[in-house]
């Protein structure tokens, strides 16, 4: 078993708890804007966790893409649609539904834990493995870029097609259609 410095462990738990707390606040906020802001908080905490899990590049991308790009788009949309009306804000289901949803969530958690336990995830027993070595040998960016442009080149290229399709689709769907409006 490898021991971690207390500093490391403390910050891991700290950001983990911040992420969970932000997530809870996120799902409970009525206002879409504050919900989005709490989600951004979760994203940032997750970025920190990534860095601590020997994935600094992913952490950077998380901040750039998720917190920086995707969430900004969400906020743009929220503001664009001007979702301030009470009917739109009071979108939470009634108490009964929330209770059942909570039970379902608990059941889901229980099942996930039962499964991870059954499949005996070694937990802390696993040594800091290959990721750290890869950082040492190829650098934080190279460790991701290497496999991405060699082993996973084809999926990477396919991703570009996916993004192109998404761009075209978003433009097409978002465009004001006069004919449709006329109808």
């Amino acid at each position: 078993m490898e021991s971690y410095p207390l500093f490391y462990t403390f910050h891991f738990y700290l950001f983990g708890i911040i992420a969970v707390a932000s997530a809870i606040l996120f799902v409970t906020r009525k206002s879409p804007v504050s919900a989005a802001m709490w989600l951004v908080s979760t994203m940032f905490s997750l970025a920190a966790l990534y860095v601590m899990l020997d994935a600094p590049f992913i952490g950077v991308i998380q901040v750039l893409v998720y917190a920086g790009a995707i969430m900004v788009v969400f906020l743009f949309v929220i503001m664009l649609l001007n979702l301030g009306q009470p009917s739109e804000i009071a979108d939470v289901r009634s108490g009964g539904w929330r209770l059942v949803a909570g039970l379902v969530g608990l059941a889901l958690l229980a099942e996930i834990f039962a499964l991870t336990r059954a499949h005996s995830v070694p937990g802390l027993a696993i040594p800091r493995g290959t990721a750290a070595e890869a950082i040492n040998s190829m650098g934080a960016v190279g460790m991701v870029a290497g496999p991405l442009f060699t082993t996973y080149l084809l999926p990477f290229e396919v991703t570009s097609v996916l993004l192109l399709a998404a761009v075209v689709g978003a433009v097409m769907i978002g465009k004001q259609r006069r004919a449709a409006d006329a109808r």
Binding site: V104, E111, A114, A118
Partner: peptide, 20 residues
């Protein structure tokens, strides 16, 4: 869509439950 999500989640629960 909400109902669909419920059905989906319950289905996931059932499948995972079966594995468990």
């Amino acid at each position: 869509i909400g109902t669909y999500a419920w059905v989906l989640v319950i289905g996931v629960l059932a499948v995972l439950g079966a594995f468990t």
